[in-house]
Design a protein around this nucleic acid. Structure first.
Length: 736
RNA sequence: GGGCUCGUAGCUCAGAUGGUUAGAGCGCUACUUUGACAUAGUAGAGGUCUGCAGUUCAAGUCUGCACGAGCCCACCA
């Protein structure tokens, strides 16, 4: 047999090894061979957080692939029936934004094509990306079951999502309402509260005169940051406890721009200490004002349209942009001598998390999920999630995020799930415009239907239209654990739900994890997963978040081609503890490439020194040898303990350190002398062989390619008759 | 305005429930091409674990305060 090359040739072996695994069928839990102790009884299932099918994978994906594959491989070696379900996400808004940018470059936009054309073009685009993502996952060594791959727009997935929508609607947990929502004027869609990012901005606080109607000499002074919304004012408000203003409650003033008469009301939401203690109430363009308006039945006066321009109700501002409108209002106020003063003022302004446009609060008809309302003698969705974590049915790692989780739930408001975009799952609702019988009127003409319909099921009218909006991506994602299992093999849901681990980034704890817990329990009565493991974000040497636009991103494929996938994986595991951001650099990856080479060369040396060695032979070991083997058992126990506790970095460091500085530096060096002095010392050979074999198993979840390559080369030919020994992928973990 | 986290070697970070001379990678210095590996080996330099006070037989690890850094949430217009 030809000896191994001096340097680990990862380029030449990785894809071959992956094919070998795929061909075995062992990624599929149904095909896994039995273990020495018999049947694989315990289950271990992870549902992959589906990467967005709108771009190739980046280094952040490499983190989750590595950690999840590590857990899956470890548990497979431990003899569990393991399932890792892969999939991709259509990522509604995100993908639409990416695609629109692409269109922009080509000089087009989404309004220059029909809704259907747009949808089809994006669909094609995501299909292309799905293929790329699949290739990349394979390259990273992901041992997921491709026969169960899912896409969030698969028909069966959509149907299940629609079922949930209908169920929520019938439980009165979903409602349509005219409410004030976060509106991005650039993308022309509403966003959920989570999609608004607040940032401190230096602005101005303007103090403005509102004259009383009964006495033009007297006026109220109002402080505002947004004078351009004055034409939308429907009242002024003061705090009922504010002694300064008791006498003027109930009087009327003149709004200074369009000179309408508006009342002065009292409301506890007004802070006595802020500005002058008088608030201008603009119910159509401010969330607090909206609430005040509702309570005092002030009605609505929208002066800004969906393009972010003022309309005719804004009087002299008609047709202007918001910025222009503000300038105009200020000149008008000055002309009227109504602007008392300006103060500089820094405050938090909401921005679209994608394009950073200033969010315009707008009153729109939208679909909401009730988060804090109990239903049918059940707890609210919020409380379902709250209790599951509180009662430790679900454990969050690291635990510090449990606090964050509860804090978020505490302040939760209803969830806006409708988006005014084209790409995504269309809301399964139709409106009957005739409503020509009482049954239909009772439903307010709202028909929730998963199937496309052409006539109203209540009154038979053909004058129906489908709701134009699509669902927030996170609405479908929140159901991912059970819809993936329900739509796969017949028994998957019964067998694998609840899953064992949900591994994802801490940045989507609210977006995704919290909502998965709510929806999972709501729909199935069971928690979706037992443990949530949150990894950190990948940052560069200077702690900057990696991104393509910053140009500091490490391309996982690039480094994997340069240094090997195993090196990349190891560098993403070591130094990466739950919840903490992970910093990687090319130097670090190089270091683990060197380690892969170390493993290779120790194996190469052993391979060259195993003449006449039969692993089956009875061998008399020295007491020193026995001690060394016993030390190895200690290491095995330590690594196992760390892995069971999700301390992957410590597990990796332990085996790394043992392999290099104990096995290679000491044990191999000592054995080298014995083998040289006593021709082919059988005990020394046995020692090296068995330690190497166990180390390959221990290292396999971390560095699957190099270990499997060596297993095929060194172990398999020497133990040809052993069942299941043909693939390291399904070998047996050295300790129970 | 509320909440959370962090401050350990030149750099980037580990150090669970407090317990022997505080660890890793990279970097640095000197020597070594010796038949597994120079993607290496041997030897070594480098830390009063931000500061102060406290709890304890014992603190990087727990408590309080101070200083410094970062993050999240939030309707004071």
């Amino acid at each position: 047999m030809k000896s191994l090359p001096k340097i680990y040739p990862f380029q030449a072996t990785e894809s071959k090894i992956y094919k070998l695994w795929e061909k075995s069928g062992y990624f599929n839990p149904d095909n896994l061979p039995p273990t020495p102790s018999g049947h694989r009884q315990d289950k271990f299932c992870i549902i992959m957080p589906p990467p967005n099918a709108n771009d190739p994978l980046h280094i952040g994906h490499a983190v989750f692939i590595t950690l999840e594959d590590l857990m899956i491989r470890y548990n497979r070696l431990r003899g569990k029936k393991t399932l890792w379900v892969p999939g991709t996400d259509h990522a509604g808004f995100e993908t639409q934004v990416v695609f629109e940018k692409k269109l922009e470059k080509e000089g087009k936009n989404r309004f220059s094509m029909s809704r259907e054309e747009f949808y089809n073009a994006v669909y094609k685009y995501t299909q292309k990306n799905k293929k790329i993502v699949r290739q990349q996952l394979k390259m990273m060594g992901a041992s997921c079951d491709w026969s169960r791959e899912k896409f969030t727009l698969d028909k069966d997935i959509i149907n299940l999502v629609y079922e949930t929508f209908a169920q929520l609607y019938h439980n009165d947990l979903i409602y349509r309402g005219q409410r004030i929502v976060n509106y991005c004027p650039k993308h022309k869609t509403a966003l959920s509260d989570l999609e608004v990012k607040y940032e401190t901005e230096e602005g101005k606080l303007y103090f403005i005169k509102y004259n009383f109607t009964n006495n033009s000499e007297r006026y109220l002074e109002v402080a505002t940051t947004r004078p351009e919304t004055i034409p939308g004012d429907l009242a002024l408000a003061v705090n009922p406890k504010d002694s300064r203003y008791q006498s003027i409650i109930g009087q009327t003033v003149i709004e200074p721009i369009t000179e309408r008469v508006i009342p002065v009301i009292k409301d506890k939401r007004v802070e006595i200490g802020f500005g002058t203690g008088v608030l201008k109430v603009t119910p159509s363009h401010d969330p607090v004002d909206f609430e005040i308006g509702q309570e005092h039945q002030l009605g609505q006066r929208p002066i800004i349209d969906l393009n972010g321009k003022f309309n005719e109700l804004a009087g002299p501002l008609n047709g202007l942009s918001i910025k222009e409108g503000r300038a105009k209002v200020l000149t008008l106020l000055q002309d009227k001598n109504a602007l008392i003063k300006e103060e500089s003022y820094s405050h938090e302004v909401g921005h679209c998390y994608k394009c950073f446009s200033v969010i315009e609060p707008m009153v729109m008809d939208q679909w909401f999920v009730r988060m804090t309302t109990p239903y049918q003698n059940q707890k609210s969705l919020r409380d379902l999630a709250w209790d599951a974590v509180k009662q430790k049915q679900i454990k969050i790692i690291p635990a510090k995020f449990e606090k964050v989780f509860f804090h978020w739930l505490k302040n939760l408001k209803d969830w806006n799930i409708s988006r005014q975009i084209f790409w995504g799952i269309r809301i399964p609702v139709y409106y009957c415009r005739e409503q020509n019988n009482s049954a239909c009127q009772q439903q307010k003409g709202i028909i929730v239907s998963a199937k496309k319909i052409t006539k109203c099921p209540y009154c038979g009218s053909h004058d129906i239209i489908q709701d134009p909006d699509v669902l927030d991506t996170w609405f479908s994602s929140s159901q991912w654990p059970f819809v993936t299992l329900m739509s796969n093999q017949e028994n998957d849901f019964e067998e694998f739900y609840p899953t064992q681990v949900m591994e994802t980034g801490w940045d989507i704890l609210f977006f995704w994890v919290a909502r998965m817990i709510m929806m999972g329990i709501y729909r199935t009565g069971k928690i979706p997963f037992e443990t949530v493991y949150l990894h950190g974000l990948v940052r560069d040497k200077d702690r900057q978040k990696m991104s393509k636009s910053k140009g500091n991103a490490i391309d996982p494929l690039g480094v994997s081609r340069l240094y090997g996938t195993d090196a990349l994986r190891m560098s993403l595991i070591i130094g990466n503890s739950a919840g903490n951001d992970i910093i990687i650099s090319e130097d670090k990856i190089k270091g683990y490439r060197n380690f892969a080479n170390k493993i290779w060369n120790v194996s190469r040396f052993i391979d060259l020194n195993l003449q006449n060695f039969e692993p089956q032979n009875q061998i008399k070991l020295t007491s020193h040898d026995k001690k060394l083997l016993n030390d190895l058992v200690k290491i095995e126990k330590k690594v196992t303990g760390y892995l069971d506790n999700f301390q992957f970095s410590l597990a990796g460091e332990t085996i790394y350190h043992y392999f290099w500085h104990t096995f290679a530096d000491k044990i191999v060096e000592e054995a080298k002398i014995r083998i040289r002095e006593k021709n082919n010392d059988q005990a020394a050979q046995y020692l090296l062989y068995s330690i190497l074999k166990n180390c390959l198993i221990l290292l396999h979840p971390f560095m699957p390619f190099v270990t499997e390559t060596l297993w095929q080369r060194i172990i398999v030919p020497r133990e040809p008759n052993k069942k299941n020994a043909n693939l390291l992928l399904v070998a047996n973990w050295p300790i129970e």
